[in-house]
Nucleic acid binder design. Structure first.
Length: 896
RNA sequence: GGGCGGGUAGCUCAGUUGGGAGAGCACCGGCCUUACAAGCCGGGGGUCACAGGUUCAAGCCCUGUUCCGCCUACCA
């Protein structure tokens, strides 16, 4: 931008074309260092960390909403003078990324084991170098103003160091332990999953099988029910409730496990629900979490019958080698043959699936690493209870509490290759384990060099849990941490409240001794126009990038902002986006109009308040109110309210009324002072509008702002301007009142025109009759405006003016407006018009009268409400009277 | 099973201390009025899911019913 181009008014194209300018301004912002955060600079800090998208991800509407909200906040706070850091980066997404690269290998006919761990990880890094930046570049197209110099990756060196530091510390404090437990196992990914990574789905094609187990002593049998008959091969007991009289005599006896011919005991355990099924349960400690617990209590044998692929192992007798599905069929068939399958019914139940690959989860006994979560959860609970972190909207707090209170230990080990490898080593010589910050060369216990590192890696969420401080350089003590931690707000969807937010809370409190963020703003899900989840299979996905190409980023941003009402999902449709694209274009054309009228204008012109016209006083006052509303709304994360206020003001007040009212002043050249003032107000108002809109629509606002003339000393970019502040000297309630009267009168005349089907080209005359001197004066002072906007040839305003013959009547602001229509229209229409108006008014009048006739209302309602109703009553009764008189007159006219 | 959110105009939804039912789109009528037809002007349309209750006054507060969505849970 040359100095010249910024001070001289430019021309704008007739239609706004986002593609022409968006890239240009984004580059300009980056080159001008507008996004960069400097901890040494002044300004109260405002910081956010981006929810790191998966490196494998590509931009969808959820990302778009999430980032647009953050960007609005970042840009708004910069304009408020805050020292803003918005930290970007990506997540290594262990299983997801590993799956992507495994698929690539599969295309080459290879498995990961064919190339080995080191080569595989190399391939993943290679993939990451090539494709890992895609999503971040897509975020840039939205306009995201992150400090890209600071981009981090959960697997980069610094973050890996943080991960190891945390792991070792927690281990040393006894908060990380290793043990054999039932975990959720994905037989396809060959790894353990945390409870959160299992998605339950209702299967209505499930079955509940009754199995009959004969007593070992031959004295009858006992029936158990199961949804997973194949697990019976690993049964080591049958349990009944000790209180259950039906079975009490059997406790202590044994049954002969069919197919396996193994004797297993009948035990009593309170876990068994007497009401369900037969009241007896088969116990498979190695393949069911509850059974595992029962097994521990009763010191039962634990028999694993499956391998890690979900196939039957050598403990499954004749069924070895079968998949779990094949095995189920065979077991059922074999029991049938033996007559030990008395009943099978259809049964609806929930089945867990792997959140990455949809494979059915197997509860599986294995050796895993866990975080003892309770102590950390307690801290995280307290922090929210004490208000150190606010969750917005507040109703999510309850969900957070509920989950935190019932949290179970977190399984953090994963049997995959891509991720942070657990820093534990096993010494083959002495059998001891070493957990250390630095890779050991030899065993510190026995000095043996034969160490094997743990092959498991950490759950991806372990590293993302550290994100708010690891990205700022922790465990080093950096200037960035000092300035920007804790962050101001975390913006995220509720779907990762537990996965991520809760873990950041726990890790932040543990490592930094301080909450990671003061606010958590939870936004909704983006759905399609009928409220359905967007999904590829439904075919209702709206791709943000295509939308940006078609309508521009600003239109998308404004749409999402205006739809983002707190606590409610966003229903998005392309029609809505195109509607807001029209708004962008409207603003654009308002700017065009403004520029066309500023050729001879100096932006340094000072506005003399006493010179302002009514319209100018009004628009300045309304601007003030809008500034106030938008500021409060953005401070409270009410983005839809901010967008709505700006839309209404810009389009329906600034464009629809003010620009029309300003035209006569701008177009005339008899009164130079009047024109100068009009230019100054026009310029000021538009300048403030684009600054107010900048957080939501940065691109078009920058283009307009750059094209507008600038005051001396203006900054380089609209990003660096100050957010408009309420200017008390323009507060002017009287102007608002008078303007409302003016607008009412103009609308009344337009209504007559519209209802009578008179084209705008058809000029009319009008006579306004009133009784109130003040109102008459107001209208007289603005009679040119009325004539202009109502398209009149002549206008007479007088006290008790005479009604011209054959005129239509409009009632507004306590006035009668006569529009002579002799020879112009069929007068029958006027009768219908007035009758309609009368009906409406009578209804309103009846409502108010009822209220005022109610003694209780008069006795109990606050005086100001009563006064208001009385005022309305009087106004309406006058209006009714006038209407009736006019209808009567009309009847006489048409009769004659 | 527990919890949460929602049922307001044809559609998608706003409606923050209870006091005149709103927006956008769609629809109807009139307009190329020299910033914008991606526009301008005017208009029609709602027993605010249902039933009770509190109150002078309820879309808003309370109770119940019903329908829809989501989260959560170890009933085999």
């Amino acid at each position: 931008m040359t100095e010249n181009s910024k001070t001289q008014p430019q021309q704008l194209d007739k239609n706004y074309d986002p593609l022409k300018i968006e890239d240009k301004w984004y580059e300009f912002w980056e080159e001008s260092h507008c996004f960069e955060a400097d901890p040494a600079a002044d300004g109260e800090p405002f910081s956010m960390v981006i929810p790191p998208p998966n490196v494998t991800g590509s931009l969808h509407m959820g990302h778009a909403l999430n980032n647009i909200i953050q960007d609005i906040l970042a840009r708004y706070q910069r304009q408020q003078g805050r020292n803003v850091l918005w930290m970007p980066g990506t997540d290594h997404a262990g299983i997801a990324t590993q799956n992507v690269v495994e698929r690539q290998l599969a295309a080459e006919g290879l498995g990961r084991h064919d190339i080995g761990r080191d080569k595989f990880i190399e391939r993943v890094w290679q993939w990451r170098e090539e494709s890992g930046g895609t999503i971040l570049n897509q975020l840039k197209r939205l306009g995201s103003s992150c400090d890209w110099r600071r981009e981090r990756f959960t697997m980069d060196e610094g973050l890996s160091k943080a991960v190891r530091e945390v792991f070792v510390t927690l281990y040393e404090e006894g908060l990380i332990y290793q043990g054999d437990y039932i975990i959720n196992w994905c037989p396809r990914c060959h790894t353990a999953l945390s409870d959160l990574e299992v998605e339950f789905e209702e299967h209505d094609n499930g079955k509940l099988w009754d199995l009959e187990y004969p007593l070992a002593d031959g004295g009858g049998s006992i029936i158990v029910s199961t949804t997973r008959p194949e697990t019976m091969l690993g049964d080591t007991a049958v349990a009944v409730n000790g209180e259950d009289e039906r079975y009490r005599h059997l406790v202590g006896k044994e049954v002969m496990l069919p197919l396996m011919d193994r004797r297993i005991p009948i035990i009593a355990d309170e876990y068994v629900d007497r009401e369900f099924g037969s009241g007896a349960v088969k116990i498979t400690p190695a393949h069911d979490a509850n059974d595992f617990e029962v097994g521990l209590r009763h010191k039962l044998e634990i028999i694993k019958i499956m391998d890690e692929k979900g196939s039957m192992n050598e403990n499954a007798g004749a069924y070895v080698g079968l998949t779990r599905e094949e095995c189920r069929e065979r077991v059922v068939a074999d029991l049938q043959k033996l007559g030990l399958l008395p009943a099978t019914k259809d049964y609806q139940h929930n089945v867990g699936h792997c959140y990455r690959c949809r494979t059915i989860i197997e509860p599986y006994l294995s050796n895993q690493w866990f975080v003892k979560i309770k102590p950390m959860a307690d801290q995280a609970l307290a922090a929210v209870r004490e208000g150190k972190t606010r969750i917005i909207p507040k109703n999510w707090e309850k969900t957070y509490f509920n989950w935190m209170e019932n949290i179970r230990d977190w399984c953090i080990s994963r049997q995959i290759w891509w991720g942070h490898r657990i820093p534990a080593w096993y010494c083959d010589a002495c059998g001891k384990m070493i957990v250390a910050r630095e890779d050991p060369d030899c065993c510190p216990h026995c000095s043996s060099p034969n160490l094997r590192q743990e092959t498991d890696v950490l759950d991806t969420w372990f590293s993302s849990g550290l994100w708010p401080f690891s990205t700022m350089g922790w465990p080093e003590s950096t200037a960035t941490l000092k300035k920007y931690y804790p962050t101001s707000v975390l913006v995220t969807g509720f779907d990762i409240l537990f996965f991520w937010v809760a873990r950041m809370m726990m890790m932040g409190l543990k490592c930094m001794d301080e909450v990671p963020f003061k606010d958590v703003y939870i936004h909704a899900l983006v759905r399609d126009e009928h409220g359905h989840k967007m999904s590829k299979s439904r075919g209702n996905v709206i791709d943000p990038l295509i939308i940006i190409d078609k309508y521009g980023a600003d239109a998308l941003r404004f749409t999402l902002a205006s739809s983002a009402a707190q606590g409610r999902d966003v229903s998005l449709s392309e029609a809505r986006i195109s509607g807001y694209r029209n708004f962008v274009n409207k603003l654009w054309n308002a700017a065009r109009f403004t520029l066309m009228n500023l050729e001879d204008f100096s932006p340094d012109t000072v506005i003399e308040k006493s010179n302002l016209s009514l319209a100018e006083r009004w628009i300045s006052y309304r601007l003030n109110q809008t500034i106030g509303e938008v500021t409060v709304a953005l401070d409270e994360y009410r983005f839809n309210d901010a967008a709505q206020a700006l839309y209404q003001f810009t389009w329906h007040e600034f464009c629809d009324w003010y620009l029309e009212l300003a035209k006569p002043d701008l177009f005339q050249n008899e009164d130079a002072g009047r024109r100068k003032t009009a230019q100054a107000v026009l310029y000021r108002t538009l300048d403030q509008i684009v600054r107010l809109l900048h957080p939501i629509m940065p691109f078009v606002c920058e283009e307009i702002w750059q094209t507008l003339p600038q005051v001396t000393g203006a900054p380089e970019s609209i990003m660096q301007t100050v957010f408009p502040k309420v200017a008390a000297e323009f507060d002017d309630a009287l102007a608002a009142h008078e303007m409302a009267q003016l607008m009412e009168v103009i609308t009344a005349i337009r209504n007559i025109r519209g209802e009578m089907n008179l084209s705008p080209g058809q000029r009319l005359a009008a006579v306004i009759s009133g009784t109130d001197e003040d109102t008459i004066n107001v209208l007289n002072n603005s009679s040119d405006c009325i004539a202009n906007l109502a398209r009149l040839t002549s206008l007479t305003i007088a006290k008790n003016a005479v009604r011209p013959p054959q005129s239509a009547v409009g009632l507004a602001a306590g006035l009668e407006i006569f529009v002579p229509l002799a020879g112009l229209v069929d007068f029958a229409q006027e009768g219908a018009r007035l009758a309609k108006e009368l009906k409406k008014t009578e209804k309103e009048f009846a409502g108010v009268s009822n209220k005022l006739n109610n003694q209780k209302f008069l006795a109990k309602a606050p005086p100001e409400i009563i006064e208001k109703e009385q005022g309305k009553h009087q106004e309406l009764s006058l209006k009714l009277e006038k209407l009736r008189v006019n209808i009567k007159t009309l009847e006489q006219v048409t009769e004659s």
